[in-house]
């Protein structure tokens, strides 16, 4: 069979694997919903969780579609579609594909037509280099979460502080990242302020939603506050970039 990066058979292969990934999500969703019913969790709570998770996901998912489009210029559509539907990300896939291509004397981004051997080499590097989390989680997850349960039984307050510290530790790293280009402002490059302003626009939207919810007693506002802060923050980046770039 003649090879092309957009060969129909590659679409079929990618679709089958993505369908299996989708089935895994459906399986765990049904399992969690069944357990929620068993322990008497309120249906309204579950419905709200499903609704807000779905709405919140839309914009980040559209950003992933943009990444698929970016990678498709070099790798065709099926491979980026598969890679970004599973563990991948634009930065990782670009680095992995660039490393594989440069090891074969090719240049990533040049739009060179790949042959089957080059394509399969790139696919193997992209897949094998990031598999670790998938097989490591089944090996360590039970033991690690068992340790958390023991900690909770021993000292409930510390267990709660431990959990909050994990979240705060992660969030603080991303807060720091937002300010990573601020140092350039002294040299006249104001573009480092764009993520900072976007961050604050989003934070203000969230804070205003919280205050409104408290004042009016309408909890529905907070249900959509995070997706709204995300969209308005992203939208603010358009005039901010025009102004500060």
């Amino acid at each position: 069979m003649e090879f092309s990066v957009n060969s129909p058979v590659l679409f079929v292969l990618a679709a089958i694997i993505i369908l299996i990934v989708l089935l895994q999500s459906v399986f765990f969703l049904l399992k969690a919903l069944k357990r929620a019913r068993e322990i008497g969790m309120e249906k309204s709570m579950l419905r709200k969780t499903i609704r807000t998770a779905a709405i919140f996901t839309i914009m980040p998912a559209v950003a992933i579609v943009v990444s698929v489009m970016t990678l498709s210029k070099d790798l065709g559509l099926p491979l980026p579609w598969l890679r970004l539907s599973v563990v991948g990300s634009l930065s990782y896939e670009t680095i992995a594909a660039s490393n594989a291509e440069s090891a074969m004397g090719l240049v990533f981004g040049s739009g060179t037509a790949l042959n089957a051997s080059e394509y399969v080499t790139i696919a193997l590097v992209m897949t094998a280099s990031i598999l670790v989390g998938i097989w490591l989680v089944p090996l360590v997850c039970k033991r690690q979460l068992g340790g958390m349960l023991k900690m909770e039984a021993k000292d409930k307050k510390w267990s709660e502080l431990f959990q909050s510290s994990l979240f705060i530790g992660m969030i603080s790293a991303f807060v720091g990242y937002v300010f990573c280009d601020v140092a350039g402002v002294g040299g006249g490059n104001l573009s480092g302020l764009i993520p900072v302003f976007v961050f604050f626009v989003s934070a203000i939207v969230m804070a205003v939603a919280g205050i409104l919810s408290k004042k009016t007693g309408w909890r529905g506002i907070t249900d959509y506050a995070l997706p709204a802060s995300l969209i308005l923050g992203m939208a603010s980046a358009i005039p901010l970039t025009a102004w500060l770039s």
């Binding site: 914009m59 980040p60 559209v62 950003a63 943009v66 979240f167 705060i168 969030i171 991303f174 807060v175 990242y177 937002v178 764009i194 993520p195 900072v196 976007v198 961050f199 604050f200 626009v201 989003s202 934070a203 939207v205 969230m206 804070a207 919280g210 506050a225 995070l226 802060s229 995300l230 969209i231 308005l232 923050g233 992203m234 939208a235 603010s236 980046a237 358009i238 901010l240 970039t241 025009a242």
Partner: peptide, 21 residues
């Protein structure tokens, strides 16, 4: 639209950060 997609992380962690911090 490119500037909006480039700033998805600051927009995400602005909202999330203000609540958790």
């Amino acid at each position: 639209l490119a500037p909006a997609f480039a700033q998805i992380l600051p927009a995400l962690f602005g909202g999330l950060g203000v609540v958790f911090i």
